[in-house]
Amino acid sequence: MSMVHVTATVNDDEVEFLCDPRETLLDVLRDRLGLTGAKEGCGTGDCGACSVTVDGRLVCSCLMLGAEAEGKSIATVEGIADGENLHPLQEKFIEHAALQCGICTPGILVATKALLEKNPDPTETEVRYWLAGNLCRCTGYDKIIRAVMDTASDLRKAS
């Protein structure tokens, strides 16, 4: 099996890796780069726990090959905080108790960060539909939606 050589950027760090062409970007992040923040909840793009952005676009890393990452800029949950300063979304998720078990949290944070960058003033319905591909089994989404709306409101006030 010939391995594919890939150079990419992950959370602004340059990375280089070899991977089997069948390996997904998620496999590469977790098993080759040690970034286990993105989770595999389904492996079929149905749960969103593996959400990352690729060149700014929100995707499921389980539905992209590692080999496809060549030259791409990838952002994961590990890159959301700015050094020791949490992103406002991260703070609000803790404050609102928007997580119970926390397995879906990385994917939801990546997804909502992408949403607020695109749409700083989403309605509740827009947030719900944007997050429809991020399954959470613990919370019933209520506190997640509240945390996102509250963050959006704070960010708008700050800007």
């Binding site: 793009g45 969103g48 929100l58 997050l131």
Partner: peptide, 9 residues
């Protein structure tokens, strides 16, 4: 077709 994430691809 699919979620926001699927739409990205």
């Amino acid at each position: 077709v699919g979620s926001t994430q699927i739409q990205g691809r």
